[in-house]
Amino acid sequence: MVIKNYQELSSLEIDTLREIGSIGTGNAATALSGMLGCPVRITLPEVRIMEYNEAIDWIGGPESVTAGVLVHIGGQLNGIMLSVQPLEFINIILDRMLSNSIEDYGQLDELQRSALLEVGNIMISTFINALSGLAGLKVELTVPSLTVDMQGAILTVPMAEYGGQTDYLMTIGGNFSCDGHELPCRLILSPDIRSLNFLLRKLGVEDD
């Protein structure tokens, strides 16, 4: 079945995406563990298809400020992937990698921004690698980019890019725990509809 928008996804298809999310986050956790030099455990990730406003509430309201890392996906799969990094997440990374911490996003210096960008990049890349390996797709990623601003505006980037097609996003949420700290992991994947169909077909999900 070819779907025209995200709401048409069947439960089998959502299950498939959830499984991918699970494997992807597992890989991302392994990568994070290597970078931070401590074991990272993950809870079972939750993959959901959310409407834009719901997704905003999920990450904590439109006006709260966070850091977001964005990567463009090209090749056999087109889309955008975003990693949203709340302050507590950032502080654990900074503490582990650079032995410092911040109280406000405004204090981020160049080196810290670069560290966050790299962490976001590696998590996204490992996630996409797992996905493309599983589906046998050739995928290219652009150079990542980091911004610190209101979440509502960060989330509109994938929305605006594919806004003509859908008002829905795919969200992957799980908690990492490291050193006794719980780290919320929030990834947002927004493939375009053609790519999503292609991906589901490649994964062998046929239900009609």
Partner: peptide
């Protein structure tokens, strides 16, 4: 009408 991410070589994204 801001440009949220400085992404190089990504077509329409930066120009929306």
């Amino acid at each position: 009408g801001a440009k949220m991410f400085a992404v190089s070589g990504s077509g329409s994204l930066g120009n929306i």
